[in-house]
């Protein structure tokens, strides 16, 4: 089959192409996941749209108390960004565990989120940070919480005519801390279990907690019960963390048992909550 190729220079041009070709088109940014699927012919698009020439799509800026990251910003740009390191050091830290330097040099944050691999490293921490994404199409532009953007295993809310433009991360003004940890066999591997936590504290302990367990389910999952239990804790220093969650969400994995994934997720959850809490205290 013939494959046609496009290099839009702006988001608008890209959206126009998407609008025209809809399901017959496939967007490629860093392609660090898509290239494998293309080679295996799992994905055989008629129209391949390369987003890498959209210069306006790669940026990191602070605006109105929020950090805004263009969807085409590479992992490496975020990892090395002085702004990110200053405002969200725990977020910057996550990147060194993603793939390898080569992958981070070319892979993009937008591609990572749109691929929606539950074992991905960015969604869990962005979810606890309350990040939103801006989804655009030829004539629309909408913001939605990342939490509702991700809908399942390799699935998002993106329709055929839509694409990601920007990731928006609110910067907490409260005394806060965050942490992400993953369990992976080797450095840079996809997670077999992961967890992220964001904690704000006040004089009476934890005022707000957000906790996500990643990798084990069809998608990263908020643990609202656990968040509620954490509420108000820690005024005397000690946290009582019981990181149990509904085990039925755990996916089959050919290499490790569901039981082990559960146990290890609990370790990760306990660790990230504790670390986020410590960081909040020091903030």
């Amino acid at each position: 089959m013939n494959m046609f190729y496009y290099e839009p220079k702006t988001f608008q041009e890209a959206c126009d192409l998407l609008n025209k070709y809809q399901d017959d088109a496939k967007l490629i940014a860093g392609g660090q996941s898509l290239m494998i699927l293309l080679r295996q012919k799992v994905v055989v698009p008629e129209h391949l749209i390369n987003l890498k020439n959209i210069k306006e799509g790669a940026y990191i800026k602070e605006e109105g108390g929020e950090l805004k990251i263009g969807a085409l910003t590479t992992h490496r740009q975020i990892e090395k960004s002085p702004l990110v390191r200053e405002k969200l050091p725990a977020f910057a830290e996550v990147f060194s565990g993603i793939g390898s330097v080569q992958v981070r040099n070319w892979g993009t944050i937008g591609g990572n989120l749109a691929h929606s691999d539950p074992a991905g490293d960015l969604a869990p921490i962005l979810m606890v940070l309350g990040a939103r994404v801006r989804v655009i199409s030829k004539s629309n532009s909408n913001e939605m919480p990342l939490e509702s953007f991700i809908t399942g295993y390799l699935e998002t809310k993106l329709r055929a005519s839509e694409m990601l433009q920007e990731i928006i991360i609110p910067l907490s003004k409260a005394k806060s801390g965050m942490a992400y940890e993953k369990e992976s066999v080797r450095a840079g591997d996809m997670a077999m279990a992961s967890a992220a936590a964001f904690i704000e504290i006040g004089s009476k302990g934890i005022t707000r907690a957000k906790v996500v367990v990643g990798a084990v389910g069809e998608m990263p999952i908020r643990l609202e019960n656990l968040e509620k239990e954490l509420q108000g804790q820690g005024s005397k220093g000690e946290l009582h963390i019981d990181p149990k969650f509904d085990q039925s969400i755990i996916r089959m994995d050919p290499y490790v048992s569901k039981e082990y994934k559960y146990e290890i997720s609990k370790v990760k959850l306990r660790n990230v909550i504790q670390t986020a809490f410590e960081r909040a205290k020091q903030a």
């Binding site: 080797r186 840079g188 050919p254």
Partner: peptide
Amino acid sequence: LYEEMAFDNGAVLNPNFMDYKIPTSRE
């Protein structure tokens, strides 16, 4: 510590370097 070919009814489940874990310079 790491390497093991996994099977389902005789079919290799991890026939690639993503899922078959060779140690890197970090391990």
